[in-house]
Amino acid sequence: MASTRIEVGVIGAGSWGTTVAAMTCANASTRLWARREAMASEINDAHTNSDYLPSFTLPAELEATSDLEWIVRRSDVIVMAVPSHGYREVARLVAEHLRPWVPVVTLAKGLERDTRLRMSQVTEEEMPGHPIAVLTGPNLAKEIISGQPAASVVAIDDRRIAEELQRLFACPSLRVYTNPDVVGCEVAGVVKNVIAIASGMAQGMGFGDNTRATLITRGLAEMTRLGEKLGGDPATFAGLAGMGDLIATCASTQSRNNTVGRRLGEGESIDEIVSSMNMVAEGVKSCPSVLELAAEYRVE
């Protein structure tokens, strides 16, 4: 699986999916699946994605399509950039056309509402027999695509595949680390979104940096306790997937979850906020599931 020769299919043309596809273009032939033909045409013709990444020019080499079967059948690696609430439906469709043993990389930082499963678990159910990895970390899409220095984590318990994926996603401005702890990396990605909503609420209510620092620090402790109970390595939560992603999401106005919290703190209703956003704030949907998991595993 040499990274210069493989073909990568990124499923989902939101801000992060488009960014990952744009970055991967430097290392492999990359194609991006957009649900709407109009968006695929814009990416191909204008090299822009005005819905999610306005003012950014995409690589001319990046090819987009709305034909899911076409993109999946020819891909040597599949990257699932689909929000958690629609993940299983799309994963089931992808599975119909996926060649055996093709690695699947998930980007979604959420839990399935009814089952409380992480996205790697949903992937395993819908695409059995495929190596499954998670790409996570403090990765705000607009900063990554603009070339600002950053780091990410690819989590999979197969060292050889981890190193190949590391080479695939890395570029001069993005350093990619590997971690065998899939559970810890995913739990961190889920829970930090919930904490970011709380951090935003504190800001919206007019509280200062002491309050936010307290929320982040105690939130990290809660995240680590839950992650350990679910089988994660506590060291993961002190790294990029845990503390790193938590700081970025709680501190940045680019964070959808932080924005939701701030607007809640300012007095808007959750329905008003969600209906006005064109991107998914995973923490809104994950909150009930995280509370249920914490109750089930007796974590405060």
Rank of each mutant, 00 (worst) to 15 (best):
S55Q: 13
T123W: 01
A295C: 04
G200L: 12
V20G: 02
A26K: 14
S3P: 01
T249S: 13
T211M: 08
T106L: 08
R116N: 14
L264Q: 06
W16S: 12
A221I: 10
P100D: 07
L246I: 08
N44L: 10
A213T: 11
W101P: 00
S3R: 10
R92P: 00
R31W: 09
D67N: 15
M201P: 02
A221Y: 05
V134P: 04
L246D: 02
R263E: 13
L215Q: 04
W33E: 06
R167T: 02
G147W: 02
Q203C: 13
E186C: 11
V190W: 04
G9N: 03
H97E: 12
V72P: 03
T214Q: 09
A40P: 00
C287Y: 12
T24A: 15
L53T: 00
L230N: 09
V182C: 09
R92C: 12
L293Y: 10
V154W: 01
G232L: 03
S276W: 10
G184N: 09
A60D: 14
R116C: 14
G232R: 03
R5H: 09
A46F: 08
S289K: 08
G129C: 08
I247D: 01
V190F: 04
R218F: 12
A151M: 09
A46P: 00
L98R: 02
V134I: 14
G244A: 07
C287P: 00
G17C: 07
Y177K: 03
A108R: 05
P138H: 02
V274F: 01
G227L: 07
R262D: 00
L53H: 00
I144K: 00
L291K: 13
T211C: 13
F237A: 11
A251F: 06
R175T: 04
S41W: 03
S276N: 13
W16H: 12
E266D: 01
G265P: 10
V90G: 01
T217F: 07
T214E: 02
R298L: 11
V290N: 03
G231P: 11
S75A: 15
G265H: 08
L98G: 01
M23R: 12
L107H: 05
R36K: 13
L226V: 10
P288E: 05
P131W: 05
V134D: 02
R92I: 08
P180H: 03
A155N: 06
V20P: 00
V274I: 14
M205K: 15
L32S: 11
S55I: 02
I132L: 11
V94Y: 00
V176A: 06
E282H: 03
C250I: 09
G147M: 08
N210L: 05
R99P: 05
R74L: 13
G14I: 04
V290Q: 04
K229T: 06
T48H: 10
A162Q: 02
T211R: 06
A13N: 02
